[in-house]
């Protein structure tokens, strides 16, 4: 973003990468995939790079308002300084905090989750999604809490899967009843409380039941948790976990000239 501003270039969107997208090896792949899709669709975008900080979501949900405010206020200063108006992110937790919690602190932006953004590109004809290798394949979709139940976005990701011509098999607990992967509310960063089972294993069992070979996800935490769940069920080679953007890129793109 700093370079863009120096060159007098105003990007259409700011791609908010998030901590997972920046540092987690698996989520980095999603970041690269989404960036590649943006480049291929000729969408001018920028990132904050090292000026981006954690949105503060896990701190706030853990109860540490102080750390949340520190990070949020710094991020808002940065975003406002660059005059950012539209943010796209591949992380539902960042999405939620930027969209719903920054306004009260003075940060007002149009915030879009990458699945919604890709879907609108598809609707506008800027992104041609085709079935390719996924045509007719059994795929199930994991609604992340922060995209689905918390922000009511159930259809955009499903429409992308439909465009991929997959055989979408819904889990018993989907949409408003979707089962959590176990990572939200800063659980990602601590050991589980004592119990009989890990939440991601419960979810993994439900995924196995669908008979799907691929789980489509929309959240970096979800990908980590579901992948771990598959390992716990020894299904990591039979059921693969991908972000929806990855499925689109793998299926192949036809780019409008």
């Amino acid at each position: 973003m700093a370079e863009a501003t120096a060159e007098g270039f105003v990007p259409e969107i700011l791609f908010w990468v998030g901590c997972s997208g920046s540092f987690d090896a698996r989520a980095q792949k999603v970041t690269k995939t989404f960036a590649e899709l943006l480049i291929k669709c000729k969408i001018p975008f920028a990132i904050l790079g090292n000026e981006e900080q954690c949105t503060g979501d896990p701190a706030r949900r853990a109860g540490n308002e102080f750390v949340f405010q520190m990070l949020a206020l710094q991020n808002i200063q940065t975003l406002n300084m660059y005059g950012v108006t539209k943010i796209v992110t591949a992380c539902p937790h960042c999405f939620n905090t930027l969209k719903n919690e920054y306004p009260a602190l003075g940060g007002n932006y149009e915030v879009v989750h990458h699945t919604t953004f890709l879907q609108s590109l598809f609707n506008e004809g800027k992104l041609q999604v085709k079935g390719g290798s996924f045509k007719g394949k059994k795929i199930t979709y994991h609604d992340s809490c922060y995209l689905g139940r918390i922000n009511g976005i159930y259809e955009a990701p499903r429409q992308l899967l439909e465009a991929l011509e997959v055989d979408l098999i819904e889990m018993k607990r989907c949409k408003t009843n979707g089962l959590c992967c176990g990572a939200g509310g800063a659980q990602m960063f601590k050991e589980d409380e004592p119990g009989q089972k890990r939440i991601n294993v419960e979810r993994a069992e439900e995924i196995v039941e669908t008979g799907a070979g691929i789980v489509a996800a929309n959240c970096p935490f979800g990908i980590t948790m579901v992948t771990d769940g598959m390992k716990a069920k020894d299904k990591q080679d039979d059921i693969l976990v991908y972000d929806i953007s990855e499925l689109i890129l793998q299926a192949g793109l036809e780019i409008q000239k």
Binding site: E3, A4, E7, F9, P11, F15, V17, C19, G21, S22, F23, Q28, T31, K32, A35, E36, L38, I39, P44, F45, A46, I47, G49, N50, E52, Q53, C54, G56, P58, A59, V67, M70, L71, Q74, M188, F189
Partner: peptide, 26 residues
């Protein structure tokens, strides 16, 4: 880590390291 490095993990690398591995965005 959040307070000191602005990230949920204590990371020694740069946030935009992934950038070098694809075509460079602005």
């Amino acid at each position: 880590a959040m307070e000191n490095g602005g990230c949920v993990w204590q990371m020694p690398e740069e946030r935009e390291k992934w950038r070098t591995e694809i075509g460079s965005p602005s």
